[in-house]
Amino acid sequence: MSGLSRRTLARRLESIADFEDPSVSLEQYLTPAELAAHICHLAGLQDDLDRQVVDLGTGTGMLAIGAALAGADRVAGIDVDSDALELARRNERAAVGESGDTDRALAWLRGDVARHPFSIADATVVSNPPFGAQRGNRHADRAFLETASEIATVSYTIHNEGSQPFVESFAADEGGDVTHAFRAEFPIAKRFAFHTETQEALEVEVFRIEWG
Rank of each mutant, 00 (worst) to 15 (best):
E20N: 06
R51M: 05
G100A: 03
R138W: 05
L35A: 05
D173Y: 02
A140T: 09
E210M: 02
T8H: 12
T124P: 03
E197K: 14
A37P: 14
T157Q: 14
T179M: 06
K190Q: 15
L87V: 02
H159E: 08
T8F: 07
H38Y: 12
D173S: 14
S23G: 04
F118Y: 13
D122K: 00
E146W: 03
T157F: 10
L56A: 00
A94V: 12
L145T: 01
G61D: 09
Y156L: 06
I39G: 12
P187S: 04
A43V: 04
H195I: 02
G57A: 08
A72H: 04
D103T: 12
T198K: 12
E161Q: 08
P32D: 04
T31G: 07
L145S: 08
A72S: 15
A114V: 01
S99W: 11
P32W: 04
A140R: 13
H195F: 10
V24Y: 13
D101P: 00
F186Y: 15
E14Q: 15
L109P: 05
A189P: 12
D81G: 11
A68W: 04
S149R: 10
V75H: 06
M1Y: 06
I209W: 10
N137H: 11
A193E: 15
A123D: 00
A189V: 13
E210I: 02
P165T: 03
N137P: 02
S2T: 15
G97L: 07
Q52S: 03
T102A: 11
F170A: 12
H195W: 10
E20P: 03
E197Y: 04
E197S: 11
D47I: 00
M1Q: 01
I16E: 05
R89C: 10
A123S: 07
P22S: 09
S2C: 07
A193T: 13
S82G: 08
R6S: 05
V53I: 02
Q164D: 15
Y156M: 09
D48A: 06
S163I: 03
F170R: 09
E185M: 02
S127G: 08
E168R: 15
R6N: 11
Q199I: 05
A148K: 01
N160F: 04
A37N: 07
E200G: 03
F182N: 12
V96S: 11
E210W: 01
P22R: 09
S82C: 01
A140S: 15
V154I: 05
T198R: 14
P22K: 10
S99H: 07
T31Q: 11
F194L: 14
D21Y: 09
C40M: 13
A72D: 06
S169H: 11
E197A: 14
E20Q: 14
W211V: 03
A105G: 09
I158L: 10
G212P: 15
G57W: 03
D101L: 08
G175F: 12
D101C: 08
G212D: 13
F192D: 14
N160T: 09
A95V: 14
T147V: 12
V24D: 13
D18Y: 11
I158F: 05
D18I: 00
R142G: 00
S15D: 14
R138A: 13
Y156C: 06
A17E: 15
T58E: 06
A143I: 04
G162E: 06
A10T: 04
G175Q: 07
F166G: 05
D177S: 13
R89E: 12
Q52M: 07
R115C: 01
P22I: 08
F192Q: 09
L109K: 05
P165R: 05
L85P: 12
